[in-house]
Design a binder for these strands. Structure first.
Lengths: 336, 336
DNA sequence: CTGTTAGCGCATTCAC
DNA sequence: GTGAATGCGCTAACAG
């Protein structure tokens, strides 16, 4: 029966206990609750662990204790660098407490999200961190019913499933529009991705700027090439466009490249603002004004919320606004 | 006893079986092996699943069947975009077969890698994909003893733990050096990260170029700012340096920025080559020559190897060289 | 086609 | 301090 090449028989706690000449439960306690066991016994068990090469089966332990020591992380698309600092900080904060991240790619479609969350729940994670809001109503109810701690991130909403760490995309949009208007620029334009949050930022922008702002929408994930094309199309819609807000720094990079190719001077002829606070923004030519988000802080706070819940601590503030900051650089007229 | 706010009692297969009026095992088979069960029974069970909101506990199933339906992915640092296409392709290929990726950050240090692999093994993954080679000898032995399928990626070596999908960093280095020399450039320089693979590329470069090549080493993860500093330091070591190989596209970007700031013309005064094939490389000014790696293909192949092993299929080719390609652009003199 | 029995490896009761 | 029994939720093996 070729049951695949799966794991060879690994040492179990049973083997350790026999090797150490103690009972199963004593071996268990020696490893996970040593305060209850005498020094000498602990040492005997530790030696037996070394002898046998024992590695605890966390799946089995979790079955009984109902704690899998895993947290699921859901991102729309893995290959978008925007969320990396969040995922990184999350991983590190969880790791420090012995938790492991299970990564899932939810895509931008509700059906896929539902299926993914189903298999994720099947692994009984002790918490779930989502970048963005959970879309599916069925999923939202399910998670609430099962009382799995959930943190939605990179957004704020009136109706969190559970907890939330993010910022208002509406406010980002209106802040950038206000910033442009404050500079005296009238003819504004938008180059934006087609996801929910980018749409929110656009809505905020429109609300503050008046609704006659030409917009070019590109499919997610955005990149430099799409940014170039977006500027071309914007210039067709309004050849006099003066200041452009882009929904990502990669798009903004593309707009700068295309502007240079067309001999447009930035910021004299055209002002550009990105979003995300990518590290390269400070080194483009001209340097790129952008909306800075502390993605790592979002990850750290999300981890803390989940871990607090797991430890039964009370959560003072289940919805946290981390805010944002417009970093002014040459592309909108800051001195070089 | 406030056992945290952990999962509320979820429906079990037991509940489903009772609701459907069949035995436990019949319910189990109806869901996971429906060919063995009659149509009507299947429908009754499906209805019961809907009624109860049952979601299978994969942990429990895995305990008995010895298949966790998870694969662990280890990256040195999550926030480096270089491996994203690999992680993405891996996730998608695994997801298509019902497997989930568990993500771990191994860092650049052996002790950390050992600890991480220990807790990873504790979750009994059906396979492990590592970016880079496994460093710790203890870990290597452990994985071989347990017969866990392992794919090392983004490298090739004489002594794989198990399977391997990558390319030769030595050959990359010598290929770039050969390319520079073929252009007639004599005074070469290197700006490189301090990880193992970058060191291999440098070794290959030196072997092909002669060992008198000035080198600046920067700490990983590299970025644009480090690239700027690297060029400054290289120019101190050799003011006449003519062609620079960088161990990442971000570093190369920084070198281009610093060159522009110093009034050095690229490629007339200085040629630059990056590594990785980042999407922005085609849009820098000048466009950046780089060594292109098909990271997504690496992920797909790694997934296929693991899945083949899990299914008990024989592996024709356990070590795969995906090669690389120098993409020539303006920064080394290609026509704009 | 369906059911009974027996664990997977561990932690949580209870006893001593 | 230590130990024996029991079961977490599910599936493999063997019966019917």
């Amino acid at each position: 029966m070729p049951r695949s090449a799966a794991a060879a028989k690994a040492a179990t706690l049973h083997d350790v206990a026999r090797e150490a000449g103690v009972s199963l439960i004593t071996a268990s306690r020696a490893l996970s609750n040593p305060r209850l066991v005498s020094e000498t016994t602990i040492e005997r068990v530790r030696e037996a662990v070394r002898q046998t090469g024992y590695i605890p089966n966390l799946l089995a332990g979790g079955l009984k204790s109902r704690r899998s020591m895993t947290v699921a992380g859901l991102v729309p698309i893995i290959s978008v660098p925007q969320f990396l600092p969040t995922v990184q900080a999350l991983t590190e904060a969880l790791d420090a407490e012995g938790y492991q991240l299970i990564l899932g790619q939810s895509g931008y479609d509700h059906a896929r999200e539902e299926r993914l969350v189903d298999t994720i729940i099947g692994r009984r994670p002790d918490g779930i961190v989502v970048t963005g809001l959970l879309q599916s109503a069925r999923t939202r109810e399910q998670l609430q019913r099962l009382r799995i701690p959930v943190v939605e991130t990179w957004d704020l909403s009136e109706r969190p499933v559970d907890m939330m760490v993010g910022f208002s995309h509406l406010k980002v949009g209106s802040a950038v529009a206000g910033y442009f208007l404050g500079k005296g620029w009238k003819r504004l334009g938008i180059a934006t991705g087609d996801d929910h949050r980018a749409a929110q930022r656009r809505a905020g922008f429109l609300a503050a700027a008046g609704s006659d702002v030409p917009t070019v929408t590109v499919p997610a994930p955005s990149n430099v090439a799409l940014g170039r094309r977006a500027l071309s199309e914007l210039l067709q819609k309004d050849p006099q466009v003066r200041a452009i807000y882009c929904s990502s720094d990669a798009l903004a990079h593309g707009v700068l490249v295309e502007a240079a190719a067309r001999g447009l001077r930035v910021p004299e002829d055209l002002a550009v603002c990105g979003f995300g606070g990518a590290d390269f923004a400070a080194h483009l030519h001209p340097t790129l004004t952008t909306v800075q988000i502390d993605g790592a802080e979002i990850g750290r706070l999300a981890a803390k919320l989940i871990l607090d819940r797991c430890a039964g601590r009370t959560i003072e503030q289940p919805v946290i606004d981390v805010g944002f900051r417009i970093v002014e650089r040459e592309s909108t007229g800051a001195a070089g």
